[in-house]
Simulated scan of single mutants.
Amino acid sequence: MTVLLSPASNHPEVLEFNDFVANHRYGTLMQAPAWAHVKNTWTADYVILRDETGHITAGMQILSINNPVGGALLYANRGPVMDLYDVKLFEQLLEEAKQVAQARNGFLLRMDPAVAYDPVLVADLRKLDLVVKSTEVEDKHAFTNPPLTMILHFNNRSFEEILAGFSSRFRGKLNKSYRGGLTTRFVSAADPQIGDAYDTFYDLYKVTGERQGFGIRPKDYYARILEGFKDCAYIVITQSAEGQPLASTLLVNYGEKSMYLFAASGNEMRNLNPSVQLNIECVKFALEQGKTHYDMGGLWSFDMEDGLYRFKRDICSEAGAREYLGELDLVFDKEKYAQFIS
């Protein structure tokens, strides 16, 4: 067992934990130590369990921040990383996490692991000293993170085989983008040109937010993702034949997974389907990089009236729809917790 309180990012056990997360079936970039660089106003601590041979079997990065109710909110974003079906191991992890809560004066540890919903597992977790929010919550916006996602699993298929699996209507949209002269380029976070590419992404993201009616974070927030994941992050830009940027994203290839973050697009030439080409080029790139699947990120509904869901469904198919099991709250101060959730 190891509890690391605010360790340096190059601490040997933090580096080992990063490798564990990157290669674990339930690991995501939100549990990567680099995510602590993104959430730079939070304090990062780590709880790690090992087997008798010294190999990590379970762990979580816990971010904490002071909350107006008094004390600190502790959050394991998409954690813990482990086999949650091993409930006894999970209980051990929670017991060790109490050291972090004590050190940070925490009133709550919130967890939302990247584990698919399973009613049997949820029932087992409800037997523990946890407040569990799951599929019974109708308003999905009540969750800290979207509880739904869409994932394209490659399943050892070639790019050509994946293309063949798309509907003829979708392939027609893709072909139209190429016939219209659109091209897509990838700029690595380590590339000297990343600054200009990032400006393009952010400008398009602002346009998207204005068009769709959502706010976006300050510019330095997304820049920290590029800094933290410098060896595996990219700005992807789809542009017209004349070089006008039309769509963009921030792509992170972490471990075996490729994750599409923050879809951005302008208002021009939308009839040429730049976002379709951008995503399919990202899929092709992920395959070339040896990734196992393409994660298109969170959703608040699987409603066909939701255009974002329909777009992601065209790429991932119905088989790519996943609902996570929900939120697991370990409460240390019931009075403050009641204020927090009210």
Rank of each mutant, 00 (worst) to 15 (best):
Q102T: 14
V21W: 01
M304K: 09
F20L: 14
L328T: 06
G181K: 10
V122D: 00
N145V: 06
Y294P: 06
P245N: 15
K39V: 04
M269C: 11
S301K: 03
V283L: 00
Y324S: 06
M30P: 02
D196K: 12
V115Q: 09
N67Q: 15
F154E: 07
D129K: 14
G290S: 03
I62N: 06
R169M: 07
V207E: 10
Y178K: 12
G266W: 05
M296S: 02
Q339D: 12
L287R: 08
C232Q: 13
I235P: 05
M111R: 02
K219M: 12
N10I: 06
L94P: 10
C316F: 02
D83Q: 07
A319W: 02
D139E: 14
P147S: 09
G79K: 00
Y337K: 09
R104S: 12
A8F: 04
D124I: 00
E136C: 09
A97G: 01
E16N: 05
A189W: 10
L272N: 02
S168K: 14
V137F: 11
P274D: 08
E138V: 11
V207C: 01
F17C: 01
F302Y: 14
E91M: 11
F285H: 12
E242H: 10
I48Q: 08
E323Q: 14
Q31S: 11
T184K: 13
L121P: 07
R322K: 05
E256A: 15
T53R: 06
P146N: 02
F201M: 07
S9M: 08
V115M: 08
S167R: 11
R126E: 15
G266P: 05
V187K: 09
G297N: 03
G213E: 01
